[in-house]
Design a protein around this nucleic acid. Sequence first.
DNA 1: CTTGCAAAGCTATCCGAGTTAGTTTATAGT
DNA 2: ACTATAAACTAACTCGGATAGCTTTGCAAG
Lengths: 205, 205
Amino acid sequence: MSGGQVMPSRRGLTREVIVRTAADMQDQHPAQVMTLKDLAAALGVRTPSLYNHIGSLEELRQEIAIYGAHELADRLGSAAIGRAGDDALLAMSWAYRDFVTNRPGLHLATQRAPRPDQEELMAGAMRVLNMLHRVLEPYGLSEKEQIHAIRALRAMVHGFVSLEQAGGFGMPVDLDESFQYLVEMFVAQVNNRQVSELPTSFKRR
Amino acid sequence: MSGGQVMPSRRGLTREVIVRTAADMQDQHPAQVMTLKDLAAALGVRTPSLYNHIGSLEELRQEIAIYGAHELADRLGSAAIGRAGDDALLAMSWAYRDFVTNRPGLHLATQRAPRPDQEELMAGAMRVLNMLHRVLEPYGLSEKEQIHAIRALRAMVHGFVSLEQAGGFGMPVDLDESFQYLVEMFVAQVNNRQVSELPTSFKRR
DNA sequence: CTTGCAAAGCTATCCGAGTTAGTTTATAGT
DNA sequence: ACTATAAACTAACTCGGATAGCTTTGCAAG
């Protein structure tokens, strides 16, 4: 068999399998630190055997982060398909939140990538950025404003889900509603963006 | 000398000193993990000596987080003194960002508290929440809306500074400007809050 | 079918960080 | 000065990551 998939031998262990299993483990216990011992056990193998497929724990963490970045990009991409404007913005925001809800450990691991500015990891982030650019296109913002807007949306959504995951919201008010409130705030502003033409009166202290 | 400060003996080591030194170390190298070995060295002492003052590394981390939470609350409090309305909101937001800029390691450590829902840590968070409640009072939001608004502001500011600190903003556009854009977005919405009376048309998928 | 080899697993071992036990020593209070 | 206590130290243990080197096994070429 030439040119096809790599045929795994013996235990069926593979870089791919390891990364995905590790990601699953982190989802099951997002708080605690994953150990190679537990990972190996979950794979039915002794710890050193992992080193036939990965270079180090740090490298594995990086791989997980890359996996997470692409998984997220995939989900946002799917959410945006066939939608445009406000609809697309809402859908992507909710898709991001769903990602964090469904894969909390993977999301955390992606945030804490050992080497955040590495090529392959940036690629995933870039996919998301490009999507946002295209979705925001029709709003007719200036180039600079568009960057501000993208940063704002990322900050809002990322901030919300991070605080939510960390248990930072104590009040007994529906979180879905709060999230909707937040994203609609963005949508409203990007539609009538007088805000950006306000005198920036309070500039820095 | 009775009733005064605890007079430290010998090396002058104290729980307080340890926590503050550890926080400083984290600020100097926010990325890397602090080790007790290095901390002890910085204090001119052998590692096990630390255990005369702290119970464990985890407990130390918790103490650092508590310290950070109160430091943040102090700064936000100072920023809000003598201000009201939009002015207060802007000032507090910038104070938060300045905190993260000046004490990046302490901020990170505060986020990653081992026991995020512990009493003493919540106290710091509560101080901030109460401030926000008081500042938002005059805007005449409903009780529920006020919670939504507070969550939104926290998400926005926290999300922005976290992404900024993680190097998540690549584009060559001024970050101060983006931050101002973000906070003004909030201020604008909380002033004329038609957004919250919009039909919540897109509710969840 | 045999055989050889490379990949993948294993055991044994090392290293470094956190932690504990038990000893020594400095200081504070009598 | 004397003693009690707290704080520092050395020595040693545990546990997780990592390396070395041996052994097994699956595949493929002869």
